[in-house]
Design a protein around this nucleic acid. Structure first.
Lengths: 284, 284
DNA sequence: ATATGGTATAGGTTTAGCCTATAATAAAGG
DNA sequence: CCTTTATTATAGGCTAAACCTATACCATAT
């Protein structure tokens, strides 16, 4: 019986659902399921009755709830005895424009929720900042890098493109097709190397700087393009297909200079979100 | 910052020593060391100043202590809301005479300390019991077996035996020597098979039933014998040497019938002692 | 100087937690 | 009545945390 189990229990109690609790706790649903079963075993009581529309607490569950809350609160209080997490904390964060806005803003929102005294200023990647969202290829030896999620590169095309009939594409299928190139691109070299090795050439119709712009051109029917899948979120006017004979991906995370000393609870909060980001089933 | 860290912290605070705390918590000293360092990192404060005769708490440590205690107490209280650990609990435990008394009694002592309402009656292995100390070879399909420690088989000999000059023995060195045989023996078959395979024979001078008796005969100079190393504890009149070309061992633990439903906290308490039993450096 | 008792670090192994995928179940809708 | 959908449970595999052993290091006492 540890604090983690209680945090999960509280989430389940309040959400009346294991799946919803899983989302709130940034983990997958089976983790909640097994942990809860374990807690019930430990206490020798059933805490919820399960049915197919969620769960409802038993008397034992209802009895446990306030104690669990007090427990978790006191644990937090104990931390703030030493690290004053309510103290004003001003952090500058650099955003690289080509990263998934949905995931980045989820991270920022959670940080604001979890760290009371926090305010941050968002700056451009070109400027100096305490923290910066970036991906592995831009990390220098002088940085600490906390990885958060992975982006797979996929082929984007207009919705009625003939390639959409395939669930996934072989690299050979895109030989000589009209292509929107984008620079800078994390996997520029791997991509070019791959094309060359397979004897494939693209018919480059445009060269743009941002993923957004590339997608606009794809949607306009100028050609296909290679983009990280997360950058599509929400867009209905293009279709993406994975590449099945090679795995191209980038690792996205947060980096900061080794010299800068940030409060441990800030870093911990960031890292606590990592599971969700890797978790496809519980996607936001 | 979890409950485990706090339990370790409390032990260190009260013992004024990492090593002593390790013994109390049934873990090795480095586990305490790293966990404590981690806790200090989390809280952003140093909790103890280390010096070569132990540790003394800092102000932060002293400040944390009462809160940590309350935390752990409340956690225990929460468990006893459901499983009334003070309720009288009468358990019969079967002891097999050939197991290490020192370790067995350590387990029994800890159980009495940790589980307030517990009383037990010790019975012989031949009788029915709720729990029984035994080893892997005696476990049936109808049992649940919780393993606690391992016993290596070693050669026991009188103190002035010429073999004592070797730090460890090859099986060939004991060919044709006077031998005290013991039955039943967990590794009877493995042992006989081994002797036969290597073309080795023993000069069996006696066949006895208990390890105690076998050791008495060894001490009296009648021959050497093969015994689990734990069964020697404290005896000065015989010397033991490991066998270096084969690993003979038995796994000792607690078993109970699958049908019997014992309180989970009893089992948990038993299993919490497992680390110590495997832990040579922190041996009792 | 040398031993002794105590803490820290390094390296390797085991275990616990997590994820994906999928099964099982029950309610809701056509 | 069958299909779809939403929910929890189980199985299998992977990763990271905790633990152990061995050893280094450091201060004190002999």
């Amino acid at each position: 019986m540890d604090i983690r189990s209680l945090r999960y229990f509280i989430a389940v109690f309040e959400e009346r659902s294991l799946s919803a609790a899983a989302k709130r706790c940034f983990v997958a649903q089976p983790s909640i399921s097994t942990t809860l079963a374990q807690l019930e075993g430990d206490l020798g009581t059933q805490l919820f009755v399960r049915h197919s529309k969620g769960v409802i607490p038993t008397d034992s569950g209802a009895q446990l709830y306030p104690h669990a809350c007090r427990m978790v609160n006191e644990m937090n209080a104990m931390r703030s005895m030493f690290v004053d997490s309510h103290a004003p904390l001003e952090v500058s964060i650099a955003l690289t424009p080509f990263l998934s806005g949905a995931l980045v803003s989820q991270v920022l929102k959670t940080l604001l929720d979890e760290i009371p005294g926090l305010t941050f200023s968002l700056v451009d990647a070109s400027e100096e900042a305490d923290l910066r969202f970036t991906c592995d290829s831009f990390v220098t030896d002088n940085d600490v890098f906390y990885q958060l999620w992975e982006d797979n590169y996929v082929i984007a095309m207009i919705n009625d493109h003939w390639l959409t009939e395939f669930a996934s594409l072989s690299i050979k299928q895109i030989d000589k097709l009209a292509f929107i190139s984008r620079r800078p691109c994390d996997i520029q070299e791997s991509w070019n190397y791959l094309l060359q090795k397979q004897g494939i050439s693209m018919d480059i119709r445009a060269q743009v700087k941002t993923e957004e712009y590339a997608l606009d051109l794809v949607a306009a029917g100028l050609g296909i393009s290679l983009i990280p899948e997360h950058s599509l979120r929400g867009r209905q006017d293009v279709t993406i297909r994975p590449i099945n004979d090679v795995a191209l991906k980038r690792v996205v995370g947060i980096a900061h200079n080794k010299g800068i000393n940030l409060p441990a609870h800030l870093i911990n909060t960031i890292l606590s979100m990592k599971p969700l980001m890797n978790n496809k089933t519980a996607a936001i």
